[in-house]
Amino acid sequence: MEQLSVTLGSKAPCAGKPQDHGHTLPILHEIRHALERLIATGEETRIDLNAMPFGPGDLDRLRAWLGTGEVQASVSAMGLTLIQETAIPGVWLVDYQNADSQRLTLHIEIAPVPEILRPQPQDLAEAIATLDARMDEGQSNPPRPS
């Protein structure tokens, strides 16, 4: 009956409501399953929100659902990458941006620590060499604390 009244043109209370686009809930379910996997097997999951058919406002609503957690971080490489923990521990929003601050893609990462925050093995392998180089440099030309 409600639907009928809507087709007759009356502005039904629910007609234009944003949650009617209905993309938030399935993603929340997906996150829940990913959390279960993380806890059970340690398997990490990344969800590319760019691939979601979001309607206007859907993303904002999803973020509101997820809330804001304690950790915020940014990685400065090829432009900024902004990391925000959500109110659900282990669920992260990772916003990859280019040098012009345009979003490249937006991931939800379900992991203890987002991948991009961790030092990469290749970089780690060069860590000591880098430190040595800096110490050598430092001895001849000591860095000034700014």
Binding site: D48, N50, A51, V75, N98, L104, T105, E115, I116, Q120
Partner: peptide, 22 residues
Amino acid sequence: LSRRGFLKFCAATASMMALPPS
């Protein structure tokens, strides 16, 4: 470009190619 930057480049590339983050 650091390895992290490269990783990010790859994440963006995956998204661009409509491939899953995995």
